[in-house]
């Protein structure tokens, strides 16, 4: 079972918020100061919010399938995955600024934003998978539960993000 101190949990969530906030601000900067602030707040809220909203479903599904880690371990690994996604987003922020600053249309900015967030979140999921289910008694069942959860969570998250980007681009 993973051990995580309170400071460790805070650090991971801080990375998630900072990385996503920076990415949101970079995307919004192309559209104006107000958009930068709005997206800088929306993106971290969506990232952490969707994970928090769907984590119980992941635990319930995994536990019912007989492959779940302990609840605290699951939360700790999800937090770490969010932190890793935030780190990736922070790392991609400089190139995102360059690409959005030189983009001719807001549609391109939206596409770039979705791609960066998608890459970061998928990488976060990729490293979270072995941490969560590396010791699972049935890898096939664990993969099915984790994949289903990932697809649904990604879908909800991207709907929120796309809506926020479209709203700011339309101003």
């Amino acid at each position: 079972m993973a051990t995580e101190t309170r400071s460790g949990a805070t650090r991971e969530l801080a990375w998630a918020a900072a990385g996503a906030g920076l990415t949101g601000a970079c995307l919004g900067a192309r559209l104006g100061a107000e958009a930068a602030l709005a997206l800088g707040l929306t993106l971290p809220a969506a990232l952490v919010g969707v994970a928090g909203l769907t984590a119980p479903a992941l635990y319930i599904g995994a536990a019912f399938a007989g492959v779940a880690p302990a609840p605290r371990a699951l939360l700790a690994h999800l937090r770490r995955g969010l932190g890793d996604a935030g780190r990736v987003m922070a790392g991609l922020a400089p190139v995102l600024v360059l690409l959005t600053a030189t983009a001719a249309s807001t549609a391109t900015v939206r596409l770039l934003g979705l791609l960066v967030v998608f890459a970061a979140v998928v990488l976060g999921l990729r490293v979270t998978w072995p941490r969560l289910f590396g010791d699972a008694p049935d890898a096939g069942r664990a993969a099915a539960v984790f994949t289903a959860w990932s697809v649904v969570a990604l879908g909800i998250g991207f709907h929120i993000l796309d809506g926020a980007l479209a709203a700011q681009a339309a101003r």
Binding site: P56, A57, I60, W149, H159
Partner: peptide, 17 residues
């Protein structure tokens, strides 16, 4: 109840789509 609440994100996704 636990299982049906676990399907709530699927409904949210369907509504979002």
């Amino acid at each position: 109840g636990l299982l049906v609440s676990a399907t709530a994100p699927v409904l949210l996704l369907a509504m979002a789509l």
